[in-house]
Design a protein around this nucleic acid. Structure first.
Lengths: 100, 100
DNA sequence: AGTAAGCGTTAGTTGATACTTACGTAAGCG
DNA sequence: CGCTTACGTAAGTATCAACTAACGCTTACT
């Protein structure tokens, strides 16, 4: 879960997630949205996103099509939702386990 | 907003937010929950959290009491909520602005 | 077979960041 | 006034993360 949050910590990766949110896109297309950095840099960001499970890859000829892995996004979302709401209980649990 | 996400990217800072979620705590109390690192390290994390606006500080004698700034947390939460739901529209806006 | 397009990967560099150690400072207490 | 507690901060270090440049591997196309 820490990995997911760290992945989200980089603005370009957030942007990539948004780009492939509703429809899959090829790596070159994605890279074209970031004129200031190299294609290689984007490829590495895609690697991070892939390893964290937030995006999936599909081969199509010479191209690699990327799309959001909604299942993993949902996991992250659920964690954050519980983070905002369950902090009180989690705090209590933590205090109990620490005081033994 | 990038700052907030980057702040959340460090697990210890997440933990600190949870610790002061429901009641304010002194810096020493917070540091006591992290036996593996120095008090100084935690103090610096508190500095990051303070500068990002996620926590507030209050002086009480020689102690500094920290508490969650719920207003700023709400801002972050709202951004993430819109991130999950509005990505479709944002993608469209982006495409329009880029194709001109 | 030869060439080009599309990408990932490796190596190396630079800047950020998490940390420790040491120090400074303000508030309480004797 | 000295001493202690409770803290932030400055300096220095080591690790990590984002990037560029160069390379290599597929897949198509002729």
């Amino acid at each position: 879960m820490d990995t997911l949050l760290k992945t989200l910590g980089e603005p370009k990766r957030c942007e990539i997630i948004r780009l492939v949110w509703s429809e899959e896109k090829a790596a070159t297309e994605i890279a074209a949205h970031f004129p200031t950095v190299t294609r290689s840099a984007i490829s590495q960001h895609l690697g991070v996103l892939r390893r964290s499970g937030l995006v999936s890859e599909r081969r199509d000829g010479t191209r690699r099509m990327y799309s959001v892995n909604h299942r993993e996004v949902a996991r992250l979302r659920a964690f954050l939702d519980s983070f905002w709401t369950d902090s009180l209980e989690k705090l209590r649990d933590l205090a109990e386990s620490n005081e033994q």
